[in-house]
Amino acid sequence: MQTEIRHLLDCHVVGSDGQSIGKVGQVYLNDQTGEPEWVTVRTGFFGMKQTFVPLSNTRHSGEEIHVPFDKEMIKGAPNIDADERLSLREEADLYRYYGMRPSTIPQQRTSGEPSMGTPITGEMRDGLMDDGLMDEGDIDMTMSEERLHVGKESRETGRVRLHKYVETENVHETIPLSHEEVVIEREPIRDGEALGTAEIGEEDRQMILHEERPVVGKETRPVERVHLRKRDVEHEETVEGQIRRERLEIDEDGTIGDEAMDEPMDGLRDERGMLGRDDDIPPER
């Protein structure tokens, strides 16, 4: 039994959403059976808050306890003092919150039984020293933040198409033309100029007349060359995005201070029990 308790105290609780919720703080045993029935998981900043989680329907894998509840549901469980025994009312509130039927409560207790569950913590060293249970040491917490990565992508913004078409226009041009016409010239023959004798009879002669007419011919010849090319034009544009950053709040004696870590933790003051820069550490009380 002590070996099982020690193993539980060394485990981390993992929610149904795969998120690590925290380390087991205490194990609560059933007063009648002595079996582990509840564990508390350390949540909140620096793991100072302990929330109850039922061990029913859980699965152990190495140093992890996989529970059928997500992280947000576990963090919202009823706030019960983890340093005391669970009363019947507190236990009923917890079962009701986790949606577990009353029949799942081991060996239904009567109203005459005032409380259940003996809390076993990692600090109960004297009784479990032989099993190697030790006090928890320093608390480590990993701080994460999101960073904005800005890249470039190429996308189509439009297309340019060259289309050649034929346009017809009327052209007027004047050219000189010539043609032949008949000109009749009459010249009387004077007496004494006649050459020989003339005979009376029919005679035909002809003359061919010519004229010029316009002749239209066409030829095709190149007049211009069009070249289409692309060029890169650079400009600057400002982009916006939201990033998330984890902060720290220190809960000391139930009072939440304003110790939000806005800067990287480049200073460490273990002797004060406080993380942060040297100039952010409050004076000694």
Rank of each mutant, 00 (worst) to 15 (best):
T174Y: 05
I5W: 03
T118L: 15
R89C: 11
S20A: 12
R59C: 13
C11T: 02
S20P: 01
V233F: 09
P106A: 01
P114C: 06
R269G: 09
I184G: 07
D266E: 15
L9W: 00
P222R: 03
T238A: 04
G18A: 13
L88E: 00
M116Y: 09
D130S: 14
G196C: 07
I120S: 00
S178E: 15
R244P: 03
L128D: 00
K230I: 14
V13C: 10
L275D: 05
V14Q: 02
S16C: 12
N170P: 14
E271S: 09
L248G: 04
R229S: 14
G15F: 13
G99P: 00
L275V: 14
E234M: 10
G254P: 02
G196V: 04
P214E: 03
M100K: 14
H235C: 01
Q19C: 10
E249F: 02
P68C: 04
R245Q: 12
Q108F: 09
I21H: 06
T220N: 07
S56N: 12
E145K: 11
E64I: 02
G18R: 06
H7W: 05
P282M: 12
K49S: 15
P222L: 03
V171R: 10
D93R: 08
K230E: 11
P222Y: 00
P264R: 10
E203G: 09
S16A: 14
G34L: 00
S16T: 04
E84L: 08
E156C: 09
H163V: 15
H60D: 09
L133T: 15
E153D: 09
L162R: 04
A198W: 01
I189E: 05
E271R: 08
I105V: 10
T220R: 07
V183I: 01
L268G: 08
